[in-house]
Design a protein around this nucleic acid. Structure first.
Lengths: 203, 203
DNA sequence: CCCTATACATACATTCATGAATGTATCTTA
DNA sequence: TAAGATACATTCATGAATGTATGTATAGGG
């Protein structure tokens, strides 16, 4: 019906925006950060560079930074509902499954590439940091609430252990896509942590 | 004395070669893989692109691949002497110190960048794989001999856990250079592993 | 029915890395 | 000491990505 099309333009715009976000992630996943040129991203999304310019801005760092922001916020929300959902019954949170899903996620790979690129790109670095600070502050609250009831281990250390391991596995997995192997690595690591202090729930 | 200079040219050549190797590592460490152009590498080494061409070949992938090979062999040797040295007294091997040193090493960073770049560069990938297969086969023998006497855990899983964690920490460290934090992460991880099966020697 | 903003497409100038060719100086050996 | 090999420098053409500017069609309000 045409009745639903009252906001046709707005919907079309949102659709293109979404296509560009996923195209950016996929382009970086496939071609690497340097290979994910504006033309490649546009082609992956099935639009032209003009669309990128319209939605994100003139420069390449604009779309990268804003897509990064998009992904980070998305994760933050998933994160919050994951750890914040049932605070009283933390034992049911499946950390293992989450980690196993994360290391294969193209979005994880995208963040790794951006992370690395931002190391030698001051502007990207600043823009990512701004988002990161905001998102991390909220995420820290969530995970802290959750983990503080589960472990005596230092919270920060535990957090960075998880992040490092997940990203490291993603790195290895990218060139050796052996799911069974890396799932086993996750299990071994979390098994070991359980023994430490009862720090991590079994599943 | 001039007597030592009979091989002057050879020595000069070796010196330039060495400068180019370290310059390549440093350039990638500072400017990232994409930013480490042949011009940048040459400037870092204090020579011209002609020198690169002479020592490594016309194309960029030539110097990257051969420097990678250089680093991998160097590590393989260190690795072999580290784990192969005193096979009867494995307990004295300081895995913690090795890991703490590795995550800050620019060469580790270089390998990470090459690892990632080779994901979407078939030629680089092939050339690295060739070296890797050879080096890994030997390295596996060494570490297997060492670890098989220390752990009931699956050897491959343990090996990839170490690699993943080290690289993951290197990744985090690259943007948050907090040595105390990541040393603590290493310690926590190895503490946890100790509890697993007596898998890893304390130090 | 017009008119302006939105949403996107197309065109172009600039910059820059690459690959390849060629030039030059120093060493080495006979 | 002449010849050629080695080590490195310089130059150049090409292609590709970027940033920017301009063009066009459609939507929705007045």
């Amino acid at each position: 019906m045409a009745g639903d099309d009252t906001q046709a333009q707005e919907r079309r715009s949102a659709e293109t925006y979404g296509k560009l976000v996923t195209a950016t992630v996929n382009a970086v996943f496939e071609h690497g950060y340097a290979g994910a040129t504006m033309t490649v991203i546009a082609q992956t999304a099935g639009v032209t560079r003009g669309a990128i310019q319209h939605h994100f801005g003139d420069r390449r760092v604009d779309i990268i930074a804003r897509v990064t922001e998009h992904i980070l916020r998305e994760r933050q929300e998933a994160y919050a509902s994951f750890y914040g959902a049932s605070p009283a019954e933390g034992e049911t949170v499946d950390t293992r499954a989450a980690m196993k899903a994360a290391y294969r996620d193209p979005a994880t790979w995208f963040l790794i590439e951006v992370w690395i690129a931002s190391k030698s790109d001051p502007e990207l670095r600043d823009r990512v940091n701004t988002t990161l600070r905001e998102v991390n502050d909220r995420g820290d609250m969530d995970i802290a609430t959750h983990l503080s009831r589960l472990s005596d281990a230092d919270f920060r250390v535990l957090k960075y252990f998880f992040r490092s391991l997940t990203r490291g596995i993603a790195l290895e997995y990218s060139r050796k896509p052996d799911t069974a192997l890396f799932d086993a690595v996750v299990d071994m690591a979390l098994d070991a942590l359980e023994g430490l202090n009862g720090a991590v729930p079994k599943a």
